[in-house]
Design a protein around this nucleic acid. Structure first.
Length: 410
RNA sequence: GCGUCGGUAUCCAAGUGGUUAAAGGAUGGCGGCUGUAAACCGCCCCGCUACAUGCGUUCGAAGGUUCGAAUCCUUCCCGGCGCA
């Protein structure tokens, strides 16, 4: 089944890195590849045409967000996600599983995709007043999990909603992305082992139900590919078990999910990847920062997505060959050098702007500042990953990675 | 000239006798952000410092009343408005 064909062109034996092509109904993705995140059918601040020019080959949107607004029927009527947003290339949708985490266990906490090294829950953080009187305050979060699915309180208006694996598949069929993900539970790394195991088992049951729901829709199954998500937190035994189970179920591809601390990422990844067959495409969900992407590639991952590039840019931080710099910092006020003098991100799009100019735009609230910085960052990541692909094909990935990490400090 | 309202920290702006170095914004400084609750969030922002329930200096200026004043009184300076 499935509408995907994955072809690995070259492997780097020692590191596990590989380069290939993933063919979807809407075009080819040359892997390893990075999908800019367009949660609400918009990569914030960047036009689809510009994304293409920056080198993007696939974008990822979100089920929870599009279900709430504008509603999946609207996207379906528009002709699917790609048509709706004016992007004619391959698309992906995430299942809403991450929102189970960010609106649930992580709600009002400082934990996120990554946590600080000490895996102790931080003090709750102030949440916007809109939630004060909603259902949320009764249990301190906007998502509550049971074995069947998850009940959500909309972060927009407080209304109550429910996702099950079947419902998530149904919505994602309507959204119509080339690749979509099974509804999973992303756990907080602060939860104990027993809970990680419980949540992982639940994710496996949900995975099976997702697959079943997907296969029942013959039309959708012909056009769309479904990826299962490996969980298991930071525990390598659970990661192995999860990977085996997800592989056994027979998905079109594998996503590696979870929230962990920096130190755990490598171990969790390699434990999972060790159980994966070569021929399935592997997506590292929510990763990442430049160094993490290279580590993921070295660990055998093919696909990445991350909000960091756009969010950091919008917030005033940009990637440079030396690391992230905070453009709004005083020292760039009169810095008329290019955003990154050492890396040509996209020659025509952002390279002509100076740090001082973009800093000015950002400071003064001009939306063009967010756009330029976001484009710069997305271009930086896409360039980094395209370079990695070339390096793999040329058999010099290790040098490429070493070269990058010795100068990049982030 | 007369009347009237007003002059508060970088800016805007609360406060009108007593936990007041002085609410709240904004600007500014620093930090954070990894399947987007995020064009957002946190900390700092009179000076000095041993960064503390410390010292010093502040609310147009100068005097005064009071145990105590940004807050009350007097005069002066500056600004808005009205009338001549």
């Amino acid at each position: 089944m499935g509408a995907l064909s994955f072809n690995i062109e070259r492997r780097v034996p020692q590191s596990g890195a590989r380069a290939g092509t993933l063919t979807t109904p809407h075009g080819v993705i040359r892997t390893p590849s990075f999908a800019p995140v367009g949660t609400k059918a918009s990569v914030k601040g960047i036009l689809p045409e510009q994304l293409r020019e920056l080198g993007a080959e696939v974008v990822l949107a979100n089920t929870y967000h599009l279900y709430l607004q504008p509603g999946e029927q609207v996207v379906e009527k528009a002709g699917g996600l790609g048509k709706f947003m004016g992007w004619d290339g391959p698309t992906m949708t995430d299942s809403g599983g991450f929102q189970v985490f960010s609106l649930g266990a992580a709600f009002g906490k400082t934990i996120s995709k990554f946590t600080r090294s000490n895996l102790v829950e931080d003090e709750p953080v102030a949440v916007p007043s809109i939630y004060d009187e909603g259902v949320a305050s009764q249990h301190g979060q906007l998502a509550v999990i049971d074995d069947e699915g998850v009940s959500f309180t909309s972060h927009l208006d407080g209304s109550l909603h429910r996702f099950t694996p079947e419902r998530s598949v149904e919505i994602q069929h309507a959204l119509g992305a080339d690749i979509f993900f099974a509804f999973d539970e992303c756990t907080s790394p602060t939860k104990p082992y027993a809970y990680q195991k419980e949540a992982m088992d639940r994710t496996h049951r949900w995975a099976e139900r997702s697959l079943k729901a997907h296969r029942q829709n013959i039309d959708a199954a012909k056009k769309q590919a479904l990826f299962g998500i490996v969980q298991g937190g930071r525990h390598e035994d659970l990661r192995r078990e999860s990977a085996r189970e997800i592989v056994r179920l027979g998905f079109d591809g594998i996503g590696i999910g979870g929230s962990f601390s920096k130190e755990d990422m490598r171990g969790a990844l390699s434990a999972a990847v060790g159980e994966l067959p070569e021929e399935l495409p592997r997506h590292f969900l929510g990763i990442g920062e430049p160094g993490d992407i290279l580590e993921g590639i070295a660990g055998g991952m093919d696909l990445f997505d991350c909000v960091a590039a756009t969010r950091l840019g919008r917030h005033g931080s940009i990637y440079t060959k030396r690391g992230v710099i905070h453009l709004k910092s005083e020292k760039y006020r009169s810095d008329f050098s290019p955003l990154d003098s050492e890396v040509r991100t996209s020659d025509v799009l952002t390279s002509s702007f100076t740090r001082a100019y973009v800093a000015h735009l950002l400071r003064s609230g001009e939306i063009l500042g967010a756009t330029i910085a976001s484009m710069h960052n997305v271009g930086f990541i896409l360039k980094l990953i395209a370079g990695a692909r070339e390096a793999i094909l040329d058999g010099r990935f290790d040098e490429y990675r070493a070269d990058f990490t010795t100068t990049y400090h982030g």
